[in-house]
Simulated scan of single mutants.
Amino acid sequence: MRGRRYLVVLTVLLLSITVAGCISSTQTPTETSPSPTNTVPLVGDTNGDLNTQDLQEYIDSLPAEPLTDAEKEGLLYMVEEEKLAHDVYTKLYEKWGLPIFNNIAKSETTHVESVRMLLKKYNLTDPTADEGIGEFQNEELQALYDQLIEMGMKSEIDALKVGALIEETDIKDLQEWISKTNKIDIITVYENLMMGSRNHLRSFVGQLESRGVSYEPQVLPKDEFEAIINSPMETGQGMGKGP
């Protein structure tokens, strides 16, 4: 279902780019903070990189309770979705040479590894283990990757919009998976991934604005999107210190 939603949004975004190279925004900025309201430890930096060593220690400190089917589905989906982000940014960096794609691709590596920690803890088979760049077991994510690459190869602006779209959708999907679990270790990883995605979204939107393009949200509600891009880059304070 999420893959299909992604494809629908991508179609809308492609149409919007065709109609106008620059999208104007009229909404009023908000000062609302997008930071999580819970007290899970956050271990990321402003580039979106996660401290996987600290995260691993925290995950290991919590018991491995039986997972629901929804929790299993979420972990298997998110490890491939994070890999999709890494792979798209890797290919777009090869095409355009923009440092933002290289930097965020490296960050996405820590995101993939963070989900893999949970797969290992709960004895789930990693669907990304034997897959190369641009290869996915989930057919909808495979189709999505192919379309995102096709779009991102058209121009630097299109490529940056692809990045923003990916990060919006990551945030939305993570919110949905968090609502389906009560496991503190899973929530902690997902909250850290969301913090990274918010920082990545800020970066892509900033790059577009520096080129005279005002990006309109394609997935997130406008108020939530504005709250993110109008607030500063986030950084975690480490384990045991709170967000």
Rank of each mutant, 00 (worst) to 15 (best):
Y93A: 08
Y93P: 05
E94Y: 03
E94S: 08
K95L: 06
W96L: 08
G97L: 07
P99D: 12
P99W: 01
I100S: 07
I100Q: 09
F101N: 10
F101H: 13
F101G: 14
N102F: 00
N102W: 06
N103V: 12
N103H: 09
N103P: 00
I104K: 10
K106R: 15
S107G: 15
S107Y: 13
E108R: 11
E108L: 11
T110F: 03
H111C: 10
H111I: 14
V112I: 13
V112E: 14
E113P: 02
E113N: 11
S114V: 08
S114Y: 09
V115P: 12
V115D: 06
M117T: 02
M117S: 03
L118E: 09
L118H: 03
L118C: 11
K120Y: 04
K120V: 10
K121S: 09
K121M: 04
K121Q: 11
Y122D: 04
Y122H: 14
N123A: 13
N123P: 01
N123Q: 13
N123R: 12
N123M: 11
L124P: 10
L124Y: 10
P127M: 04
T128M: 07
T128N: 07
A129F: 02
D130A: 05
I133A: 04
G134K: 01
G134C: 03
E135Q: 15
E135R: 12
F136A: 12
Q137C: 10
Q137W: 09
N138Q: 15
E139N: 06
E140Y: 14
E140R: 10
L141I: 15
Q142R: 13
L144E: 12
L144Q: 09
Y145Q: 07
Y145W: 09
Y145K: 10
D146G: 01
D146R: 07
D146E: 15
G152R: 02
G152K: 00
K154R: 05
K154I: 01
S155K: 01
S155N: 02
I157M: 00
D158H: 12
L160H: 08
V162S: 03
G163S: 01
G163Q: 05
A164E: 12
A164G: 14
A164C: 10
L165R: 09
I166Q: 10
E167Q: 08
E167K: 04
T169E: 14
I171D: 05
K172I: 04
L174V: 15
L174D: 04
Q175E: 12
E176R: 08
W177R: 09
I178N: 06
S179I: 05
S179C: 00
S179M: 07
K180F: 00
K180T: 07
K180A: 05
T181A: 06
T181N: 08
N182C: 01
